[in-house]
């Protein structure tokens, strides 16, 4: 017998239709422009554009500094999350609230603030100068702003998992004779690992694409402290749309791969901790 497909709750066609429509006009169609534009280039031309020495130097800096920044954040972010969840200390609520500052503070503001701090005449820059460490206008400066940008990702992915952690697990480990460190190494850390890696990947992905907070402190010296997004801007300013688009394709492909990896990691986190975020 025939029967029209029915839904108990209303609005399926309307909401899904609108969702797809809006997704297409805001995201998918404009994004496809990048790939269509690049397809005008031959493969060898494309390869030439994305492998010029100056662009390659920018990849090295962008990816290298982003990886390093994400690693630093993984270590210190875990420490911060641990302290925030497991200890009480004065000012904890304030610290907890301010962790999200990089999400809320416009990147340009972060950029000029970090530059002012780490410039040779700034509070921290002047302290580091006698030690022979130059931060602002060097690759080190890029690293500093990428650490700033990525910090909340690790803390905020690890924190809820730590909060939900059953004390019984660690008590069981202790009752079986494990030392505190062994318990951490063999019980707690494996549980936190998927979340920690997710946080790391999120911080990494954000850092690779970051622009606003980096350009002020980087100094933007060709072959030394230029990041990849800046290369796109530079090409655009020279009206080299094809060149800019080719580099954008490289970045996009990288983001897609990372997005897939992050989705996989999040699925793993959910499975490993039995929690639905």
């Amino acid at each position: 017998m025939s029967r029209r497909a029915f839904q108990v709750l209303p609005g399926f066609n309307l909401t899904l239709g609108y969702t797809l429509f809006y997704l297409c006009i805001i995201v998918l169609i404009p994004l496809s422009a990048v790939f269509l534009k690049t397809s005008q280039l031959g493969l060898s031309q494309f390869w030439d554009v994305v492998t010029t020495p100056r662009v390659v130097a920018s990849y090295k800096l962008s990816f290298g500094a982003s990886l390093l920044a994400a690693a630093i954040n993984a270590v210190f972010g875990l420490g911060l999350a641990w302290a925030l969840v497991r200890y009480s200390f004065p000012g904890k609520k304030l610290v907890d609230a301010l962790i999200d500052l990089p999400f809320a503070l416009p990147t340009a503001v972060a950029g000029i603030a970090l530059t002012a701090l780490y410039a040779p005449n700034g509070w921290l820059g002047s302290a580091l100068e006698p030690l022979g460490i130059k931060v602002a206008f060097t690759p080190l400066g890029v690293l500093v702003s990428l650490v700033f940008i990525g910090l909340p990702f690790v803390v905020r992915t690890v924190q809820p998992i730590l909060e939900d952690l059953d004390t019984e697990l660690e008590e069981a480990a202790a009752s079986l004779g494990a030392r505190r460190w062994q318990t951490f190494r063999h019980v707690t850390l494996p549980i936190l690992l998927p979340a920690l890696l997710t946080g790391f990947a999120l911080a990494f992905a954000r850092a690779v694409g970051e622009y606003g907070s980096v350009i002020f402190i980087a100094g933007n010296i060709p072959m030394v402290s230029e990041i990849t997004p800046l290369m796109i801007i530079t090409k655009l300013e020279q009206y080299d749309y094809t060149g800019a688009t080719a580099i954008a394709v490289v970045m996009l492909l990288f983001s897609f791969v990372l997005l897939l990896a992050i989705n996989g990691l999040q699925a793993w986190t959910e499975k490993a901790t039995g929690r639905n975020r």
């Binding site: 404009p30 994004l31 970051e210 622009y211 606003g212 997004p229 796109i232 688009t245 970045m251 996009l252």
Partner: peptide, 12 residues
Amino acid sequence: SVSPVVAGLIYV
């Protein structure tokens, strides 16, 4: 996951 710079570029 798209760099803001790329986001601007696509509309250009």
